[in-house]
Design a protein around this nucleic acid. Structure first.
Lengths: 201, 201
DNA sequence: ACAATTCGGGAGCGATCGCTCCCGAACCGA
DNA sequence: TCGGTTCGGGAGCGATCGCTCCCGAATTGT
């Protein structure tokens, strides 16, 4: 029983996410957002309450798209674990190459910029991290169950190593490091899972 | 032939470094800096030109203190390589515990906040990264030379893996992750260097 | 003693910050 | 048709941003 919106709220959140992703929270002004989303201040505040709330929306949107896609790529059904892991990590350091690179990971950027000062942000970054860890865990467990990984493999430990490596890779992509070097790091991280156990004949 | 300063420039840079380190570049205002360094705007600008230049000074100061100390701790003479690496990485994720934690690494925080947009900043972060890589390289080379590491060890690759892991650890410390989990990741990263070669009798 | 020079302190510049309010127009249900 | 409600647009709020300028005081070399 009122006038409907002339803009798509979802598109607006997408644009806001890209902006926050590239520049970070503090370096992105409300006017920048207004220009990018093609929203006047009144519409922006009526829809998103304030800058901080919009930022949380952007974080949630990122988790619902990029993070979810990352998890799916790791769920790769019945392909060899090492291959899945390798391609997944390679994708992590090249995915933002749709046009531009050096954006890193929005969650990692946010975690380092705001640290643990902002509780609502911290909850979201931590939840995103935990999702990744769980995805790694199930992938490794499946691989071990199929006999591709040693039965002695310490999965919890391997998860911590791979997860830490991924965060480092994201930082390095943001810093503009060579893909070649990152690939080297990826290959060695996977090799750290140990050799494939000998097949019982 | 003029009135001397009433403040210690070095102390001022140290305070500025702590502030930029904790809050990042954009979230730290010139007035915050003035309060912390106990400098009036006129003194601050006369001495440090502007905020951006002071930030570069802070980055240089950090590299000359924290980064240098980190490199020295890695130079640990004749102790076992794995032990040196393990204690070094543990120190990296606990060193800011002089009072407060969750500061991460100033260089890593800066690299993710500003990305590659600021050329002068990029040069400094990249130089700091390269110093760390070189330190890792020489440590590994020495360990291999002493027979503690396999002669087949791909040192360049191991450097990339350890360096990437370190960046990840720094992010996780900033994010407030448990020391226990970080220790697990550290131990597995070191184990990735392979077993000690059998001693020739 | 005296000119030269830099100091610390502070007022305040224009610009931008995040945000609010008011407006006439557009759209809805009854 | 028309009252009710939300819309897009824009002026502009107080606060803070990075930064400049001017001042009297302090310390220098001569």
């Amino acid at each position: 029983m009122a006038r409907p919106r002339q803009f798509d709220e979802k598109n607006a959140v997408t644009s806001a996410t890209e902006l926050f992703w590239r520049r970070g929270y503090h370096a992105t002004s409300v006017r920048d957002l207004g220009d990018a989303l093609k929203l006047t201040p009144s519409s922006l505040y009526r829809t998103f309450t304030d800058k901080h709330t919009l930022f949380l929306r952007a974080l949630d949107h990122y988790r619902a798209t990029e993070s979810t896609q990352a998890r799916q790529r790791l769920d790769a059904a019945d392909r060899p674990v090492r291959e899945v892991l390798r391609e997944w990590m390679l994708w992590l350091v090249t995915c933002p190459a749709d046009g531009e690179s050096g954006r890193g990971c929005f969650v990692v950027n946010t975690a380092t910029e705001l640290g643990t000062t902002d509780e609502k942000v911290r909850q979201r970054t931590e939840a995103a991290f935990e999702v990744t860890r769980q995805a790694l865990r199930s992938t490794l467990a499946e691989g071990r169950g199929r006999g591709e990984l040693s039965a002695d493999l310490d999965i919890d430990g391997a998860v911590e190593l791979l997860f830490t490596t991924v965060l480092g890779l994201r930082v390095r992509e943001r810093a503009g490091h060579d893909l070649e070097r990152l690939t080297t790091a990826i290959d060695l991280a996977i090799r750290a899972l140990g050799p494939a156990p000998a097949e019982p004949a």
